[in-house]
């Protein structure tokens, strides 16, 4: 329904937790390949399967990032506070429209179901960004010559029309099967590869446009922390405690996937970087490793917390101090 509403020109979203995302796999692929904007909120809880439905987790990262079969990858926003949940809730629609693709907003049960102190939310002042949408006037100017999947500007983002646009050339066929630049069905190897490469180009355009990581760096510490989402609260406290013990640690908070190049830069400037997350497998740790130059991979360490309780600061300071062989 959400994808259909978005296709029809409305701004549409749906919200769920991990099991709901599992059920959406097929349609997430359709929206990615047919390039239909949609916003999906995932309030992560602990899995797999039904898991512990009332306990928190950050275990849907790698799944949401690539959900669906084939070469699929999605834009993911990672709010670290209720303020950012509000902000990203608004911006997710702009990103979905601008990049004509599903946008997953990954909150978690701790952020989504607990009370948090927060500054007052700021009501948006900027207008909606509906992206590349051709109006009747645009089509008149183009004499009706356009292709739904033609990359005119070289950024991978194509133009679309909305149902009801009063022009004979406005219509096109939306399909999840192979298509060419004019939305015509094809199994042409070249057309398929061109389309997939363009989708990749669009993804790279989005990489630069999504919320940049928040970096707090003294320039003096050789140790860094990387975290995201609700783990931020524990990292802040852990850093305060470490600073009180004269162990200054720098911090980068990831706010979106695909990863910003700033992440590799941060790793490069530190001898050791701990990736802190609330899942068993170190999903963000693995994603970062995949995106790093080979010579930097060895600098990463993983701190994982996955008992369903929100991560406390101790779960960061203790393994870090132990690993750095600092007496407690």
């Amino acid at each position: 329904m959400a994808i259909g509403a978005s296709w029809a020109g409305a701004r549409a979203m749906t919200s769920t937790s991990g099991p709901g995302i599992s059920l959406m796999a097929e349609f997430a692929g359709l929206a990615y390949y047919a390039e239909v904007p949609v916003v999906i909120f995932d309030i992560q809880r602990i899995g797999p399967s039904t898991g512990l439905p009332t306990r928190t987790s950050q275990g849907d990262i790698s799944f949401a990032y690539t959900i669906s079969h084939g070469d699929t990858k999605h834009l993911v926003l990672l709010p670290g506070s209720v303020e950012e949940c509000y902000e990203f809730g608004r911006d997710a629609f702009d990103y979905a429209d601008r990049f004509q693709t599903p946008v997953f907003v990954l909150s978690d049960l701790d952020l989504g179901m607990n009370l948090w102190m927060t500054p007052a939310f700021k009501y948006p002042e900027k207008p909606f960004d509906r992206g590349k949408v051709l109006s009747k006037e645009d089509l008149d100017r183009l004499s009706g010559e356009w292709g739904r999947y033609q990359d005119v500007e070289g950024d991978g983002i194509t133009y679309r029309t909305l149902p009801g646009t009063d022009h004979p050339a406005a219509g096109y066929f939306t399909r999840g099967s192979g298509h060419d630049e004019h939305a015509r069905y094809t199994e042409s190897a070249d057309a398929y590869a061109r389309n997939m490469d363009r989708l990749n180009r669009k993804f790279e355009t989005a990489r630069a446009a999504l919320p940049a990581p928040v970096v707090d760096e003294s320039g003096k510490s050789s140790v860094g922390l990387i975290a995201f989402g609700s783990t931020d609260a524990a990292v802040r406290e852990a850093r305060e405690r470490l600073a009180a013990a004269n162990q200054s640690v720098d911090y980068l908070r990831i706010r979106a996937l695909p990863l910003s190049p700033d992440v590799a830069g941060f790793v490069e400037r530190h001898e050791t970087v701990y990736v802190v997350e609330q899942n068993r497998d170190g999903q963000m740790f693995d994603l970062i490793r995949l995106n790093l130059p080979a010579e930097l991979i060895g600098r990463l360490r993983s701190i994982r917390h996955y008992n369903g309780q929100p991560i406390p600061a101790d779960a960061i300071t203790e393994p870090l101090l132990q690993s750095e062989a600092i007496p407690v």
Partner: peptide
């Protein structure tokens, strides 16, 4: 899981710094 009768825990963290993480 919203099952009446099972235990529930509510933690109130009070700190001058405004820490918002859980404490053990």
């Amino acid at each position: 899981s919203n099952i009446e009768g099972l235990p529930t825990w509510y933690q109130l963290r009070i700190t001058p710094q405004g820490h918002m993480a859980r404490s053990d």
